[in-house]
Nucleic acid binder design. Structure first.
Lengths: 210, 210, 210, 210
DNA sequence: TATGAATGAGGATTCATTCAT
DNA sequence: CATGAATGAATCCTCATTCAT
């Protein structure tokens, strides 16, 4: 069932953004349950009834935001150069694209960061379903068209890929925790990546490939 | 500020356990916000007022439980054989000890598992602070007295350790998600670990050490 | 205070009917309080603002409908043969006329049936007042030009008339409750009436009149 | 399913009465839907939460009141002298008993009067079910042990009884409408009854019985 | 005159915390 | 110290009415 929030989309863009940002912020800070629609309407400077005219319920508002940030995320994949077959070049690329989009939609990423923490049964089943799909389409896509023949033959490639993925994700997470909000993320972060990439290449690429 | 819950500790041990277990269960199942003090007092068979006499507020109760499970976790470090200097043997040991303690305090671990999902601003700042300390003291301690000379000299040892740590933690997390509750965790899980350890050793130990 | 809904009456007849029927249906089904102006405007295919332009408020719309159905009811009196002076023949006539008009304006009668159930203080006082007037003018009119000399002299004629009226009304009410909607009312209902009329005649008419 | 409102019943009688009377009044005046729990708690001088502690929901409160007034009504049948077999003596008796109870529980009767007007689907099914039972047990009981042989043989006794019942009920209703509230009902009302009873007896009893 | 988005008071209900017994 | 009823602020949501276009 796809719901199109036509009344909402017919608002002028500035008002839409005010509402989206107010809601992203409130949900990111407090989680679904504790987030207050009162706070959202106050910050967005709209009337109580309006929010429910646009989105019917708190739950639908949350799911709408979830779709919204997915839309933002998907912009990453639109910008990837799929001709680059080297895993680490690809990852570097993705990192840079992400950074650019971070800066454009900082609240969306703060919201996204809070989604996996969501406990409320009202929305959990929905976001779990969508998350699963995202991971399959999305994360999988990050590896599309990668030249796997560069990897050592004497180790299980699946496990190597896992170690690389975990390293990249854990390092990213560590960096992200250092900044309170995505608004401040900086390109400096990427220098250290290269050093990790260098280690991983030396370990997992075939000798002659290095 | 350290608060000692004098009145609570003066209760007979069986009542203390009833309260702790009821609270651990309720918070683990529903998260801080949605957890109901009514359910807790009903399960623990105590009066409403008593709970607040013992712990002052829902928030303090939560933080008390957090300290309690930390106490449980620290038992791990009491049992480690610090004479074992090989990193991977040490890790294997820790895993086995954890498993034993899991089985003894399943509710504590279910609670601990739920903590990182906590979104509520009321407790988030507190648990983030304590978590940070835990990681520094705790995880750091896991590495105490490890023979670092086994590692390759041509790579930054700090970064190697990070890659190893992230791999172990990510793999553990992946395994944990497969089990619904710690009550059923089994030793079989550990076989796959060895395969990862083998890869990591071949990459990061000096050639002659293998 | 008499309000004439000028703007409404200047609409083309088909639109007027659409609005009246939509409103009659919604009020009859749900009562004043629960009736939704949204449902009415949707069914009548007019704009929200228009309804309030025509009738100012939900309350006035309701009272307008009340007047409208009174108009329908009054058609009954236009069709009565006032030369028929026998009470029971007159009543039979009224019943048959009612039935014909029922079938012509089913929604009006469904609405009318729902009016006595109305509890809302917003409209109750008004309809009570109008109802009283209706009973006095209307029901009274039903008795106009009746030959009262047929009734026994040894009993208070006023009381006899009351007993007859109450019997007719109570019996009617009982019959009405058996039908879900006036659309299905049938002539069969009238057979039992004759049996009651027969009893009443034998009791209250002078002996030689029978 | 029978629910016993033990917390409510453990309150002191004066508070119970304050709550019951406030709720009876609000529901009688406004009907189920429009009645405001806010008004009730204000009039009863209790806290918002308390009302819901006692009765769980507005719906349960309404149904509780319904049972309460049924209890009041049933007192009528406890006081009837079932050895009196004359229909009209019996009716006179019931009328007098009702009057006494009216004066004791005026609000209960105002509430009862409003029940048949109730449209809200939330409570309608429930009250319809109970009403049916009441009519069967209750109204039927009014006629228990009546000596039917006094009635004329040449007319259908069922129809005679209906005419008598309708007359009594309609007359009562007429009288009731004259008083704004049951608090003012007076014994004078009953004199006119005798005159109606006299007419009905002369019509419907066998000649020699008169 | 027609439109339909905007408004906000008011609705029922919850629940951590208090406090008299 | 134990009890559990009392409290009321805060929750999400509705809907008749208004008003700018």
């Amino acid at each position: 069932m796809i719901i199109i929030y036509q009344i909402f989309y017919s608002l002028d863009r500035e008002k839409q953004e005010r509402i989206i940002n107010a809601a992203l912020k409130e949900f990111a800070q407090n989680g679904y349950e504790k987030a207050s629609t009162n706070v959202i309407i106050k910050e967005a400077e709209i009337a109580k009834g309006s929010l429910f005219k646009y989105f019917n319920s708190k739950k639908e508002l949350y799911l709408f935001l979830f779709d919204y940030v997915n839309g933002v995320i998907n912009k990453i994949y639109d910008e990837i150069d799929w001709n680059e077959t080297d895993l680490f070049e690809r990852m570097k690329q993705i990192g840079l694209i992400k950074l650019r989009i971070y800066k454009q939609y900082p609240k969306a990423f703060d919201f996204l960061k809070s989604v996996p923490n969501e406990n409320s049964p009202e929305v959990k089943s929905k976001i779990d379903a969508i998350k699963k799909e995202l991971i399959e389409n999305g994360l999988g896509m990050g590896y599309k068209n990668i030249n796997l023949s560069k990897f050592r033959d004497d180790m299980d490639t699946k496990k190597i890929m896992n170690i690389i993925t975990w390293t990249i994700m854990s390092f990213s997470e560590q960096q992200i925790k250092k900044v309170s909000s995505f608004e401040n993320v900086d390109i400096e972060l990427f220098y250290e990546w290269d050093e990790y990439f260098d280690i991983l290449k030396r370990c997992f690429y075939k000798k002659e490939e290095q």
